[in-house]
């Protein structure tokens, strides 16, 4: 059994009175890619956003989220520290209106890092990890918003990597991208899992089967099945999972 990066116990999420996620228990293995799949409204994105407290002020999250033996869902948790350890990449690329270089080191700079050599090294390392370095190394000082959509998304991944998190949460990171950019991002993820634990929400079942080691299927706010990806796709134990995978859903 793998080492556990994050353990979720009895987690439920509600928007006001409306429950969206109910009673989820699961353990995310370290240095693996875990895919969360399910139909729209199944609660997978909501659960993902709860894992680094991005649902604060939006929804009520109950239950425990254990990270290195600490429940990070407690009110007294320092959410900023949590988000530095558990980073997030969004559905749409979100470059800040500044240079490529500044985008990558933004998180670091705000934490007070001023040493130019450290910053330079981190920019190069992060961009290389995100497989963007070769394309942008000669124009680091130009605007990030002039990049293509796929490059912008890899830049956002690099920006998250630069803060050196342990876990990276990805909320449908390729849904706004063309197939070529999607391939590049998927290839990047395969490299990244050696150093990071990746949890990715995707609408695309082929993507889940291609890139993930573990897959969790969600339906109506409940975790239906959570298994190694090949087992879940080849041999689901729940009828509901089988129906969803074969397109008989609904």
């Amino acid at each position: 059994m793998n080492e556990i990066a994050l353990a979720v116990q009895n987690v439920a999420v509600a928007y006001g009175e409306k429950p969206v996620v109910t009673d989820v228990n699961m353990e995310f293995p370290a240095h693996q890619i875990t895919a969360l799949i399910g139909a729209s409204g199944s609660g997978k994105s909501t659960l993902l956003r709860s894992l680094n407290r991005m649902n604060d002020e939006i929804a009520t999250v109950t239950g425990q989220i254990n990270f290195h033996g600490v429940d990070i869902n407690r009110p007294e948790t320092n959410v900023y520290r949590v988000r530095q350890q558990i980073g997030m990449v969004f559905q749409q690329p979100t470059p800040f209106p500044m240079s490529i270089y500044e985008n990558v080191i933004y998180g670091l700079r705000l934490r007070g890092e001023k040493d130019r050599t450290v910053l330079d090294q981190r920019v190069e390392a992060s961009l290389k990890q995100a497989a963007l370095w070769e394309e942008v190394k000669d124009r680091l000082q130009t605007s990030a918003q002039a990049l293509s959509g796929g490059q912008q998304q890899r830049l956002c991944i690099a920006r998250t990597l630069a803060t050196q998190p342990e876990i990276i949460l990805m909320d449908e990171p390729t849904s706004a991208l063309d197939p070529i950019s999607t391939n590049q991002i998927e290839a990047t993820l395969a490299q990244l899992k050696e150093q990071f634990t990746i949890i990715i929400v995707t609408h695309n079942m082929q993507q889940a089967s291609r890139i993930s080691d573990w897959t969790a299927y969600f339906e109506q706010g409940k975790l239906v099945e959570f298994k190694p990806t090949d087992q879940l796709f080849m041999n689901p134990s729940e009828q509901r999972t089988a129906d969803y995978l074969s397109g008989k859903f609904g």
Binding site: N52, M54, Y80, R81, V82, R83, Q84, G87, M88, V89, F90, Q92, T94, F96, P97, Y106, G107, L110, C156, R159, T160, T163
Partner: peptide, 27 residues
């Protein structure tokens, strides 16, 4: 200023006042 810009800032571990001051306000 798009809501996603704020989310991206928060996702990097920035406190809200920093997101407001450094990301939202300049835009």
């Amino acid at each position: 200023v798009p809501a996603l810009q704020r989310q991206a800032g928060l996702g990097l571990g920035m406190p809200k006042w920093q997101v407001t001051l450094k990301i939202v306000l300049p835009q």
